[in-house]
């Protein structure tokens, strides 16, 4: 059972791994990650791969848009894990 804080921590760690210079402390959780960290499609894919591996969930491609912001990401993954 993972709390929203756990999910957030994992997500931020993955972002920091992809974009080491990213200021994750001051991330706006409701803004798109793409805007804040210049994520391109390959970065985004690496982000999704990281979430799948670390949280042991299955993320189909059609759900990618739900991962666009940190808030969206947490809500989506929480629902997935709790199911």
């Amino acid at each position: 059972m993972q709390s929203e804080d756990d999910i957030k921590k994992v997500a931020l760690e993955i972002i920091a791994g992809i974009a080491p210079e990213a200021d994750v402390e001051h991330l706006d959780p409701s803004d798109r990650l793409r805007n804040q960290f210049d994520f391109d499609s390959v970065d985004f894919m690496n982000f999704a791969v990281g979430l799948e591996e670390q949280l042991n969930v299955n993320i189909p491609e059609e759900d990618y848009p739900k991962l666009a912001t940190l808030n969206g990401c947490i809500a989506y993954l929480k629902a997935k894990i709790d199911r």
Partner: peptide, 17 residues
């Protein structure tokens, strides 16, 4: 692309580019 990716694991999915 969609049908290809549906049967692929996340790591093997193709990006539109």
């Amino acid at each position: 692309l969609e049908s290809e990716n549906r049967r692929r694991s996340i790591k093997d999915r193709l990006l539109p580019v």
